[in-house]
């Protein structure tokens, strides 16, 4: 009989990953991206072609929407969305609602045609920011870095 103070790892028949508190690891193959934008942007098509699972909706009236629930990364436009959630705050109102409900389980990114210097404190509401004229590779870089934070 061996020393009872030593744990026999060979007989440890469950992985730490199976423990719920460890969380799920996200990568390209199992993550979903949602865009909330009232305009059509080619980035959605480019990301789909690059192999990402992407959905786009013109607006969000309910933060329990299935498409929101299954997404890990959510890009929210600054203007023209969220009219059903907050008439005044638009995109920032949507982001605030998403962050309150889903906290750290989703990464919410503000993207806008506005100059970042004019967004001021609004920038801090989201997890990150990208300008609307960013390159496709900038979007991909940001998505890859953001899913690692989940």
């Amino acid at each position: 009989m061996g020393n009872i103070n030593l744990v026999n790892f060979e007989n440890f028949n469950f992985s730490l990953k199976d423990l719920k508190f460890w969380g799920k690891k996200y990568e390209k193959s199992n993550s979903r991206i949602l865009f909330v934008d009232d305009q059509e942007f080619p980035i959605v098509e480019n990301l789909i072609e690059a192999g990402w699972a992407v959905e786009k909706i013109n607006d969000l009236s309910n933060i329990d929407d299935d498409r929101v629930v299954r997404a890990q990364i959510i890009f929210v436009d600054y203007k023209g969305v969220g009219k059903n959630l907050s008439e005044k705050d638009e995109g920032i109102g949507v982001i605030r609602a998403l962050k309150t409900k889903y906290r750290k389980s989703k990464r919410v990114i503000l993207y806008s045609g506005h100059n970042r210097f004019t967004l001021g404190h609004d920038l801090k509401v989201a997890d990150n920011y990208l300008p609307k004229n960013a390159d496709t590779y900038e979007f991909i870089e940001m998505i890859e870095s953001e899913i690692k934070k989940l």
Binding site: E45, N46, H114, N133
Partner: peptide
Amino acid sequence: LRSIQGKMKQKIDG
């Protein structure tokens, strides 16, 4: 202008 330029850039990117 930034939004239109973004669409053009992303379309060429595609």
